[in-house]
Design a protein around this nucleic acid. Sequence first.
DNA 1: CATAATGATACTATAATTGTATCATTTGTC
DNA 2: GACAAATGATACAATTATAGTATCATTATG
Lengths: 133, 133
Amino acid sequence: MKLITRDTDYAVRALCLIAQRKGCIVSVKKLALALQLPRPFLRKILQQLNKKKILESFKGQSGGFILAKEPAKIFLTDIMRIFQGKPSLNECFLKKIVCPHTGSCPLRKKIVKIEDYVLRELGTVSIALLLRS
Amino acid sequence: MKLITRDTDYAVRALCLIAQRKGCIVSVKKLALALQLPRPFLRKILQQLNKKKILESFKGQSGGFILAKEPAKIFLTDIMRIFQGKPSLNECFLKKIVCPHTGSCPLRKKIVKIEDYVLRELGTVSIALLLRS
DNA sequence: CATAATGATACTATAATTGTATCATTTGTC
DNA sequence: GACAAATGATACAATTATAGTATCATTATG
């Protein structure tokens, strides 16, 4: 039961570091070094964050990335959505044959409830929050 | 974000069906047929349920499985624990370098909280509940 | 004693995740 | 202007987890 994949994990770490260097352009090279993460993989991740307007990128010799939003406006759920798709926990997996609840499977209801809860809770976690001591 | 794997899924379906045939010994063959599931795979699953005392097995010609407990005492979390291990959502994935919260990462706290919630909710879902209309 | 079931376990296939490599493009510096 | 160092885009490879198969031994029923 893995809530957060490695993509998301690395992305959040990188975002925290970039946030700490307020305004400075940070290259993948430096990030990978500081975080001890595989550089090409991290690069791919940052490119995706750029596409999704979480980061802004600069090409050329002293290029790199900065945040495209305030740290308080970047939420864990945003990142999860990018790398893990819509966070739907599971389909109602019981077929009618076994499960008599045609439209109102209690398990389905539970799962929807859990899903809401998880999103609500993780929706309060921003990069800013993670940086505050 | 997958809460329930196929093992667990199949196991629950099979348990529901076995529960419906109160007391009757049901063979993998019949279950696989009724549920339209791959027979050898289902067999492996039932064997594991037997080992964990959820099912009781009978060898020989008209052998098969019956429930080893009342349906009301078999919970989804029991099954999940068997096939998906301890349902710990994630380690605190932020390293000290980035995350200044040495012992009190807010994300970690959240995740523990979510974990508790999920277990509490799924802990109320029993086979009996799934069969009640 | 043959048949049909489970026990145990090794093996294979598939899919998802994780990570690499490469070529093109951009930009600052000498 | 040429070079170096960065990102953009994208195809490819490796690893791991999940899903499923095969097989031989054992047991019980008829």
